[in-house]
Nucleic acid binder design. Structure first.
Lengths: 194, 194, 194, 194
DNA sequence: TATGAATGAGCCTTCATTCAT
DNA sequence: GATGAATGAAGGCTCATTCAT
């Protein structure tokens, strides 16, 4: 009976290793060493090296989405939900900087990440964002003259780029402190008011 | 005397091959075959496989930035420039779909791309965007109460995500037709007007 | 736990392969096949192909010197020691003809052998020869009017050339039977006595 | 009509290059550059890279033997001839230190040098040495109780080792100044006289 | 379950040699 | 003859994966 502990150990070790060296420059044996087990043992829990990456992302993403979903549920309206979502997106990455490194930088491996299994995981988050947008439109708080999909991509892209930039810049400032500005642009736009 | 033609042949072949298989799943010999030359010939023009990727990006990016810069120079004001920039960003990727594949998907190899030499190339584009934003702020067309850097990241992130999504979705629609919606959100914001 | 057996297997296989084809014309995979293992296994025991050669020489040389040292210790005086050393030098090469092939012919790779690590191993043998010479000089059995270093080189060179010539001549006679003549020339000289 | 000049240029360039980097670490293109010609031109004068080495040795060796032969012809008897031969052997190497590097160190490539064509060239020198020895034996100046071949090998080996040692020791002293000691040991032997 | 030694397919790169100009 | 760009075979080394213990 596979120990869930060991599974988790491997995932956590992989996060650290991938964050440090990148996926292609990490050996399975590096992960094993970091996890304090033999490299063969990895294969009792994961079929391939790729599967580690995919599983890691799947699980972390699910956790992430669950946390965000729960948090925004407590907010009174779509605008508040949106602000909370943005703030939390940044806060969670900030608090898990190794994971942020993996997600923002290492996981952007073409074939492996964007296509393939992980697509499904990401779409869970996309759906969550979309639901907030739709709620806001229905409530008349958000404009309804734009395709939700486009709006969702614009918002996600904006947050994602903020995060990537923060990771690449060696995390030299607090990502979460930029949340309000991002929410503000997204809600009110850049144009000067007449 | 190394022919510039051959250099270009190799770059173009590499774009096609990387777009098809991804960088790590492309053999140098694949590129050579695609270019119709012997694999050893590659090494008369590039020191390593990595250098092909980096050079490819550098040159294509420089071209891209030059094209955009020239186009927006003709526009009368910052708002027009911004709309033109967004439209062109999408149009150029649309017209070079293999390059788009490489840039949006394959090139996101952590260590190799974001860090390293390519960082400089990207920042050329970032600077261009920033200059438009600053021009608009100076002219009173854009809000001045937000950090330019943040605004720039939001815009770039939005465009980038639109592009990535389009590439991953097998380019099943016209990316350039989404340009106006993106510009609109960015300028006017999502919030419903009172 | 890396098996010492396998280390030795590889060394012995390498001796046979190098003796047969020469270092530069031997593939690592040839050694692996000869040792009855997979070629990747070699790299669990040696970092590079070069390291096999160097290690091989180091170990065999240490063995050689130890054997000679032990044998001459039993001899009563410097002349007897010298004769024994010459006889054993030849006998040992004769009994390990593949190793002789490698040492006399293949190992004379400029950069790799003479310079570099192996220099230290050779000097162990040189020191042993020198100590016998010095003992003989101190005892008044050998002339003291000549630099020990020169005498040592002359002796070693003479033995070495005898060995090389024997190896190149396909070992068509018994090398050890020439030992006495060599010792005789070295001790008494070529000049006719008045 | 192949220019003899170009042939010689290539040989001289090869001596310098091989002396500097060793045979296996020298590229044909290095030799070409050193000779101030295009690498393809080499192949108008030599069939292969190997042939350069072999020819180089053949020609230099022939020159060497001719010089020594002529010099000793002028000497009155076998002892004088022998002393002259030893002195000249050292002197010539000393005066052509790049060639010495090649001959003593780089040329000792098993398969390529000792066997194969070069064997013939060396034997010319061996014959010359033998002829002096035989002359001395016939004249009663040298002992006749030893096989000429053995005596010849001992002498050549002694000289060769002196030279090798001098080359490896970065030529930090004058090789030619050791000639007398070598001759002395060879003629009178090491044993103390009663 | 756990181990880690062993496997061997895979690939980048080098460089002697060729040949069209 | 001279050039040097082009060729392409060859091989050292890595590392994900397996499997006997």
């Amino acid at each position: 009976m596979p120990e869930p502990d060991k599974h988790q150990q491997i995932i956590e070790a992989a996060v650290r290793i991938f964050a440090r060296n990148g996926y292609y420059n990490s050996r399975v044996s590096d992960i094993a060493k970091e996890a304090g087990i033999a490299s063969g043992t990895i294969y009792l829990y994961f079929k391939t090296k790729d599967e580690i990456l995919v599983t890691l992302f799947r699980e972390k993403m699910a956790e992430f989405v669950a946390t965000v979903r729960k948090a925004i549920a407590a907010e009174p309206d779509a605008v508040a939900k949106l602000r909370r979502l943005i703030a939390l997106h940044f806060k969670l990455l900030e608090d898990h900087s190794e994971m942020a490194e993996v997600v923002q930088v290492e996981l952007r491996q073409g074939q492996k990440f964007f296509r393939g299994a992980s697509a499904n995981e990401v779409s869970g988050y996309f759906d969550l964002i979309s639901s907030v947008l739709e709620e806001g439109m229905a409530a008349g708080m958000f404009r309804s003259d734009l395709p939700v999909k486009t709006v969702r991509k614009v918002l996600f892209g904006a947050m994602d780029q903020m995060a990537t930039s923060w990771v690449l810049g060696k995390r030299g400032y607090k990502l979460s402190e930029t949340a309000e500005a991002v929410a503000d642009i997204f809600l009110k736009g850049l144009a000067a008011k007449p």
